[in-house]
Design a protein around this nucleic acid. Structure first.
Lengths: 192, 192
DNA sequence: CGTATTTCTTAACTTAAGTGAACGACTTAT
DNA sequence: ATAAGTCGTTCACTTAAGTTAAGAAATACG
């Protein structure tokens, strides 16, 4: 499992054995069961996540209704907003599937950063890339209809449609579950 | 004008006079007229922007139609996706108003970073914060209706509604100009 | 194994956004 | 100064999403 992490890091920088061992000595790896809630609304937490295997999900509860806004799967990293701002979280994070994650906090990151400055540089590059991706995603969302967004998702993350419940997908697409059902029916009709 | 830049930077790190001079010697500042197109679709560019005064706008042309996805105003920073990926741009960037910007490229950043490593650390922190903000914005967009999004904008960036043409605002809100007009009428009726 | 719960789909109806067109108010260019 | 173009609004009509409700299908659990 560690290999997945190092493979990911190697896309940005190369690590010596010493450096790898320093990272491993932090005891980052966690197995979490489907349904586990990693972060609750109102909770203060210091933990950041990196998904090695499985899927975690960000959702809000607005007027008693769950609104899913993001899914993080293999090789995705997530530092909750509340960690950066040291404020209570506005949202929940839960496991869609049994998953393997790394869980780290700012103290651990500070330790690694001070030992290996290039690690912090890497995180900078990674974050810059994530920001660019996030903006493109947001742009695509804004410039397309729910139906186009669904078709787009079918292209880009077909796995999600399989592994995630429809009603969570629906709010991820910005619509109600009933609308997603209808929309899928519409697409099937058109194809035939 | 330089003060605005240094004031911004001072939120993250403190700079010595030497460091300030090194930054100034790069000749970053540009005055640009309203309507100027800074980046065109298909164009490869190395430039990043920081808005000192004014407003710049990101838009796509999809099926001959302008789709505005972002406005950057005072103290906002923008590195186009195409710069990071060394690919032709998918979108346009233009000036909504006469503006004052800093324009920098990766060579200049590399120079500053090598002279003052803490500058790169600062950029990392800044980017992390921007990413968190972008995600929150995206979440709000997904979980609300066009009307709520308009009301939200009215709260958070009331200036935008004044300084930007309605039809650009409309696509920023994910709707057509006619729908924005109607929606505003609806809100006025409710208030009375 | 069967029951309870959650999830997905369908349908009828309501509400809001998309579309196409027309009009007046402004800006821009010549 | 006038003509051309842009911009915002309004209207009638179409299309799609929200809402409410009911029932089928899948899943969880004792």
């Amino acid at each position: 499992m560690q290999d997945t992490l190092f493979e990911f890091i190697s896309k940005y920088i190369s690590l010596t054995e010493d450096e790898k061992n320093a990272i491993l000595s932090l005891d980052l790896f966690r197995e979490v069961k489907k349904g586990t809630i990693l972060l609750k609304e109102g909770q203060k937490s210091k933990d950041s996540y990196f998904v090695l295997k499985g899927c975690i999900r960000v959702y809000y509860i607005i007027n008693g209704e769950e609104k899913t806004t993001a899914f993080y799967t293999e090789m995705d990293a997530l530092t909750p907003h509340s960690v950066l701002h040291k404020a209570p979280s506005d949202y929940f994070i839960s496991c869609v599937e049994d998953s393997i994650l790394t869980v780290s906090n700012s103290e651990m990151e500070a330790e690694i950063n001070s030992k290996f400055p290039k690690f912090e540089i890497m995180c900078g590059k990674l974050t810059e890339e994530l920001l660019a991706k996030e903006r493109i995603n947001f742009d695509e969302f804004k410039t397309s209809s729910p139906e186009q967004r669904y078709l787009n998702l079918l292209q880009k993350r077909p796995d999600l449609i399989q592994r995630v419940p429809q009603h969570q997908l629906a709010s991820y697409l910005g619509i109600k579950p009933q609308s997603l059902s209808r929309l899928r029916g519409r697409i099937l009709e058109k194809k035939s």
